[in-house]
C-alpha cells in the first residue's frame, strides 16, 4: 500500500544545532506508530515539521502523494493531518462544545455552525465529555483537557493523527482509559503516530516504533526488537549500562513484562 505520510530526509537547524537531522520515515494507512526518544531528542520538533508549525531546513514531507513541505498548520489540519499538543491548547473562555465545534467547522469542513456542533457533540460523547459540553474549557481538570484536545482533533476528521504525549500527567487508571480510547480511534480507521514516554502505552498500542536521539532516527521497527536494540539502550541508559547488558546478553526490557522506563531519562 502506498504510504499516507512520507517524510524524506527532513532536517531542522536552530542556529548551529540540528534539532532534527535527516529523518526519513513513512506511515501506512491504519498503522499505529510510536515515536520515542529521550527528552530533547527532537520528537516535538519533528511533529512541528510535519504539521507546518516549523518549516524544514532541508528535506520534504509528502501527504497522500502531494508535497506539503511548505504548508501552514491550518492547511495541514484541513488536509487531514491533525495533532494534539503536549501542553494542551484550549480556547479557555469558550465552552467545551465550542472548542470541539471549532475543529469540526474549520478543520473538519462542517458546512455550518449547527452542523459543526452536532459533529462536536458526537465526538464529545466518544471521549466521554458530553456531560461537560456547556462548561468553559478552562474549568476542566487535566485529564478532561486532554480528552477535549483529542475530541477537538478528532472533529477535524483527520486521516493522520499525531498525538504529542497525550498521557503525560495522567495517573495509571486514566492512562488505561486513554489507551482504550486511542485503540477506538484507530478502529475508526485513523492512522496514528504517538509520541510517548511510557513503555506500557507503547507496547500495548504500537505496531511499529521510531526512535529519535539527538535529532537522528537511530532505530525503527517492531517494538520488542527496537527495545532491545543496543543503540536504543545506549541512548536511554548510557553506554556503560548498554555494555553491561551486552555482556549479560539480555535486553533491558523483559518481553513478558513491559515496564515503565524512566520517562525523564535523557543521559548518555
Amino acid at each position: 500500500m502506498s504510504p499516507l505520510l512520507r517524510v524524506e530526509g527532513v532536517s531542522r537547524y536552530f542556529g548551529g544545532v540540528a534539532a532534527v537531522n535527516k529523518v526519513s520515515f513513512e506511515l501506512a494507512p491504519g498503522e499505529i506508530v510510536g515515536l520515542i526518544g529521550p527528552n530533547g531528542a527532537g520528537k516535538t520538533t519533528l511533529v512541528n515539521l510535519v504539521t507546518g508549525v516549523l518549516r524544514p531546513s532541508a528535506g520534504r514531507v509528502w501527504f497522500e502523494g502531494a508535497d506539503v513541505t511548505a504548508q501552514r498548520p491550518w492547511q495541514a489540519s484541513r488536509r487531514g493531518l491533525a495533532r494534539t499538543f503536549q501542553i494542551v491548547q484550549p480556547f479557555p473562555q469558550m465552552t467545551v462544545l465550542e472548542n470541539v465545534a471549532a475543529g469540526a467547522l474549520f478543520g473538519g469542513g462542517a458546512a455550518s455552525r449547527p452542523e459543526a456542533e452536532d459533529v462536536a457533540m458526537e465526538f464529545l460523547e466518544f471521549v466521554g465529555l458530553a456531560p461537560l459540553a456547556e462548561r468553559s474549557a478552562m474549568s476542566l481538570t487535566l485529564p478532561s483537557r486532554k480528552r477535549l484536545e483529542l475530541a477537538k482533533s478528532l472533529a477535524m476528521r483527520p486521516k493522520v493523527l499525531l498525538l504529542d504525549e497525550v498521557n503525560a500527567g495522567l495517573n495509571s487508571a486514566e492512562i488505561g482509559a486513554a489507551i482504550e480510547l486511542i485503540r477506538q480511534i484507530a478502529a475508526r480507521g485513523v492512522t496514528i503516530m504517538l509520541i510517548e514516554h511510557l513503555m506500557k502505552v507503547v507496547f500495548s498500542l504500537c505496531d511499529r516504533l521510531l526512535v529519535l536521539h539527538h535529532g537522528e532516527l537511530i532505530a525503527q521497527g517492531d517494538p520488542r526488537a527496537v527495545a532491545s536494540d543496543p543503540a536504543v539502550v545506549k541512548a536511554y541508559l548510557g553506554s556503560k549500562y548498554a555494555a553491561q547488558e551486552q555482556q549479560v546478553g539480555a535486553g533491558p526490557v523483559d518481553a513478558a513484562d513491559p515496564v515503565d522506563t524512566p520517562s525523564g531519562g535523557g543521559h548518555d
Binding site: 501552514r72 484541513r78 480556547f91
Partner: peptide, 13 residues
C-alpha cells in the same frame, strides 16, 4: 482566545 490553537484547528488566521 488562542492564536496558535486557532491555526491548528484550521482557521486561516
Amino acid at each position: 482566545q488562542n492564536e496558535d490553537a486557532a491555526d491548528m484547528v484550521g482557521v486561516n488566521v
